[in-house]
């Protein structure tokens, strides 16, 4: 039987893991982005997400009540204990895919944090109030690239549409019911679409008509690729427990 604090903890852990896993994927771009300026932009975005993840992880640890710290939760949980959605966990090495994904993710985070900023939980409201400004910039960055590539050359248009088609099935998971949710996930659906669709239209792209992916991240079911991500993210801490910079 789960207590209210435990279910809230699970909810917070989901949001924390979304941010943490997305940050780790952003980090992949460092030294690989199209040019130096974009390298820094993506690293900055990843660091913003990591900052959100740290506060949320600490709070999730407190709510859980077993004394686990942010590091314990980030580095010492196995794949099945992670609660992030599939949208953020899959490997990506195509810049268009990263921008399509960031557009969807940042649009969702923008509405989520805007709603959480006025929720009665002071910790969540605090994190959200700070993060809402960060994700506004992430959304702007992604939107500009999606428009630029979508409304660019014939090839960039076609590749941007393919990227959007590839990421769109993973949007649905963000709006599925979650136990302990402070903000009803379904209530964000129209708001998030209202942020994404004008960008897609301006980019001269089509809103994909695709079936939702299965998902299941909130219940600890993940794609194979999360395992590789965790191996890279956790191996140093596990090989050298307590290591610090």
């Amino acid at each position: 039987m789960s207590t209210p604090s435990k279910t809230l903890g699970d909810y917070v852990l989901g949001l924390a893991d979304d941010a943490l896993v997305s940050a780790q994927r952003m980090g992949w771009w460092i030294s690989r982005a199209p040019q130096l300026e974009e390298d820094l932009a993506l690293a900055n975005i990843g660091l913003d997400q990591l900052g959100q993840a740290r506060t949320l992880l600490s709070y999730a640890g407190q709510l859980e009540g077993d004394g686990r710290t942010e590091d314990d939760l980030a580095y010492l949980r196995d794949e099945r204990e992670f609660r992030n959605v599939w949208l953020v966990e899959r490997a990506q090495s195509d810049f268009g895919v990263t921008m399509a994904r960031l557009l969807l993710f940042a649009a969702w985070q923008s509405e989520l944090y805007a709603a959480l900023a006025s929720c009665p939980d002071p910790t969540l409201a605090g994190v959200a109030g700070k993060a809402v400004k960060e994700v506004a910039y992430h959304l702007d960055h992604a939107a500009r690239w999606v428009v630029r590539l979508g409304d660019g050359t014939e090839e960039s248009h076609q590749r941007m549409q393919a990227a959007l088609d590839a990421e769109w099935p993973y949007l649905d998971e963000l709006f599925r019911p979650v136990e302990g949710a402070v903000v009803d996930p379904a209530s964000l659906h129209p708001l998030v679409l209202a942020r994404i669709e004008p960008v897609v239209a301006e980019a001269t792209l089509e809103v994909p008509q695709v079936a939702p992916a299965r998902g299941g991240g909130r219940a600890g079911l993940h794609t194979e690729e999360l395992g590789y991500l965790l191996a890279e993210m956790q191996h140093l801490h596990r090989s050298h427990p307590g290591a610090t910079w």
């Binding site: 130096l36 300026e37 820094l40 960055h141 500009r144």
Partner: peptide
């Protein structure tokens, strides 16, 4: 200085490169 395709992107790149 920095490289950017247009003024809008230049401003954003400047934010990311020089005001971190």
């Amino acid at each position: 200085s920095l490289h950017a395709p247009d003024a809008e992107m230049a401003l954003r790149n400047a934010r990311d490169v020089y005001t971190r």
